[in-house]
């Protein structure tokens, strides 16, 4: 299989900045100890099958030489996000929570599909009926779909924040 260096997100996953630079070659000092004894890296521990390595932060600052297999972005078995590689909506995306499977799932799907595939200049402006139907359904289940916000100020702030987040997501999508 084709090999490539670990994708950036993997390196960055643990949080913090991407500080790894390839080629900065210092062999880390690695110690191993077993239970109460101190040995070398290849120490025999326990029943001889459990190796222990203690690594300092500095040891792990050098880039990893481990190689990961390149992922197939169109792997049909892999969990997908909301939008499938072919552009369709993945209704089984966990990101939808119970929206697609709950009692108003049908209405939600209809509204969201309409919006997703809308070609109007103002995207979704042709989906008013579907959104209204969804809202009417949701009103029947107040404990499933809460109608009121704790306070409007907060929600408008949320909206603003989410809007920013969403545009950030858009940028990322464009660059990934």
């Amino acid at each position: 299989p084709p090999r490539l260096p670990p994708p950036t997100f993997l390196l960055a996953e643990g949080g913090g900045a991407v500080r790894r630079q390839r080629g900065a070659g210092r062999v880390g000092t690695v110690r191993a100890r077993c239970g109460h004894g101190v040995g070398t890296v290849r120490a025999r521990c326990g029943h001889g099958k459990d190796r222990i390595i203690f690594a300092t932060k500095e040891d792990h600052e050098t880039p990893s030489s481990a190689e990961l297999v390149a992922d197939d972005p169109d792997d049909p078995y892999e969990e997908q996000g909301l939008i499938l590689p072919n552009g369709d909506i993945n209704w089984n995306c966990p990101c939808l929570g119970g929206m697609a499977s709950g009692p108003c799932g049908e209405q939600f799907k209809s509204a969201f599909s309409c919006f997703h595939y809308s070609t109007e200049e103002i995207k979704g402006s042709d989906c008013v009926d579907q959104f209204r139907a969804m809202q009417e359904c949701m009103q029947k289940y107040p404990d499933l779909y809460p109608q009121e916000d704790e306070n409007d100020e907060k929600s408008s702030k949320d909206l603003e924040a989410a809007s920013m987040e969403a545009s950030a997501a858009k940028e990322e999508k464009a660059s990934s």
Partner: peptide, 12 residues
């Protein structure tokens, strides 16, 4: 995906 969802629904 989650972010896209937000984008969609805010606009929508």
């Amino acid at each position: 995906a989650g972010n896209n969802l937000l984008l969609y629904l805010i606009v929508g």
